[in-house]
């Protein structure tokens, strides 16, 4: 009897695991496969209106400012076609830099400002020593821009 009970418990456990997996799959396919929307997609109304969503793009060079209260950050996210201003109260991740990728989670607020509750840095798949990175930078901003927009697409 005991072996049978054990077997039943294992089958129930296995089914539970499979159920969780299936739920995760469905959940992922439903809404989370699009991890973020670009400012262009937001402008064309593809992003959800009243729900929390994420926007992604590049932090526009020279756009990062701190509000008068000292904790709210304001920066512009761009996908080179459209731009969107983001407000965020909190600590930015280490890799958050102007000219680099970013994903912010939040809602659209008044005046089409995106009010973020979480900001994540999106880095690219290039790994190189600082000297090589500097050489690439010096090779001209055009090449860098191209690379940046390339890494954004991925």
């Amino acid at each position: 009897m005991k072996a049978r009970q054990q077997r039943i418990a294992l089958i129930v456990g296995g089914l539970a695991v499979l159920g969780i997996a299936a739920a995760l799959v469905l959940n992922a396919f439903q809404s989370n496969l699009v991890f973020f929307f670009s400012p262009t997609q937001v402008a064309s109304g593809e992003a959800p209106k009243d729900r929390v969503f994420r926007i992604g793009g590049m932090v526009k060079e020279g756009s990062l400012t701190r509000e008068a209260d000292g904790v709210t950050m304001r920066f512009v996210v761009t996908d080179t076609a459209r731009e969107m201003t983001v407000n965020y109260k909190g600590i930015l991740p280490d890799l958050f830099k102007e000219g680099k990728g970013v994903v912010a989670q939040g809602k659209l607020g008044a005046g089409d400002v995106f009010v973020a509750s979480e900001v994540l840095a999106k880095h690219d798949e290039n790994y190189m020593p600082p000297e090589a990175a500097k050489a690439l930078d010096d090779a001209g901003s055009r090449a860098v821009n191209e690379k940046a927009s390339h890494s954004l697409k991925q």
Binding site: L18, A21, V25, A28, F35, F96, E118, K122
Partner: peptide
């Protein structure tokens, strides 16, 4: 955690890898 700013996000890569884990366990 240090690079993106989160231990975990529900993006397609991470979610599908988690499903792989459940497949092995299953």
């Amino acid at each position: 955690k240090p690079m993106w700013g989160a231990w975990w996000v529900w993006d397609a890569r991470l979610t599908s890898e988690l499903i792989l884990f459940f497949l092995y366990i299953g």
